[in-house]
Design a protein around this nucleic acid. Structure first.
Lengths: 195, 195
DNA sequence: TATAATTCTAGAATAATATTCTAATTTCAA
DNA sequence: TTGAAATTAGAATATTATTCTAGAATTATA
């Protein structure tokens, strides 16, 4: 039970590493076999195929990010702390897991168009509901401005997300950590009441 | 000379359509052959391989977007018009070319890690220089706030970009066009002096 | 206009790679 | 201890990308 889990995790780790280095299309199952030490049969036992492997990685990353964000948001006592805390977490997560971010950002939809969207959609729906529940009280209290609901995520994380994207391409040039205060301030300015 | 160009364009069009419908990984050269009417030999005559085809599509899209943006920015007479015009163009371009946007957003880095980055980087550098030249006078005049230079693009287009991303996944649910005023206002608030 | 050179097209032949399949081996519960 | 289930292995097969050779179309040159 332990050996098995490790083997599965080894495959995921090797795959993420290969995907990061060479891109999904360019990494062969054999590359993953060599790097993970698993056999072809073992890889196909644990994952349906290359796409299934990519999907598993994607979901694993998403799950970690979402759980962390919910934890941070749950503790906020004011609208400002909520918003700035979310931005801070977002950037810190990227700094801590650059490979996962790169993979999730660039490799996602590539693999197939719908995949198992049933499950992914449900998880996404749950996540959005939970985030909404954490924002709502502050909107009602007037600490956060009211917007059409689809705008909250773009206003909150859009600039951070865009800077992270640039940072992934030019890690040496961009001081992502140093930009955190600006990003937090910008998000708060966009979401605070009036102006 | 005319027949040839058409053939090449037909291949690009068919490829974009296949990539949009099934994803890059899942479309075979044979799919592109069938949809374009070109032979395998012809496809490989015009493009080095599947990745080269994707790269050509990516560059074509980028070129169109960039040229259009430069045109819009060049006419702006004030900081506010510059910023809001840029956001407006960005969103309108997505509305007009959803397939290209989807492709560029999701399919890009997938294909290979560096590809012909020499050329792409140079083009990107030129583009950024030109954009910078259009912003600078307004920053000097004090109509646009001074920031670390890597922040302008995220603050300007981050929220729009993020909403577009969501819109591509849920086109029926999101009223992208209707959100334009909010996005323009948010960008202007982020970039205008003081607050 | 004739003809050489170049570009383009075609599809069969080949190479690379993904996936399946059968047979062990290991793990775990009874 | 034993048998069922899970896991591993790698050879066999299927799929797909790419190359190659030959011929058709176009363009340039005389």
């Amino acid at each position: 039970m332990n050996q098995q889990s490790n083997r599965k995790k080894d495959i995921l780790t090797a795959a993420l590493s290969c995907f990061t280095d060479m891109g999904i299309a360019a990494t062969s199952i054999d590359d993953i076999r060599l790097k993970s030490g698993a056999s072809i049969g073992s890889i196909y036992h644990h994952f349906s195929n290359k796409e299934g492997l990519a999907t598993a990685l994607f979901r694993e990353g998403l799950e970690g990010y979402r759980q962390g964000l919910i934890d941070v948001l749950s503790e906020a006592q004011s609208g400002e702390v909520l918003v700035k805390g979310a931005v801070d977490f977002h950037v810190e997560w990227a700094l801590a897991h650059p490979d996962k971010v790169r993979f999730m950002l660039y490799a996602k939809r590539e693999m197939s168009v719908l995949a198992d969207d049933a499950v992914v959609r449900e998880e996404t729906g749950d996540f959005l509901s939970r985030v909404k529940a954490l924002f709502t009280p502050f909107i009602i209290k007037g600490e956060i401005r009211q917007f059409p609901k689809e705008l909250y995520i773009p206003l909150l994380s859009g600039p951070s997300q865009e800077l992270i994207r640039i940072w992934l391409s030019h890690p040496k040039v961009i001081d992502l950590k140093g930009m955190k205060p600006y990003l937090a301030e910008a998000a708060w300015n966009a979401l605070r009441p009036s102006s």
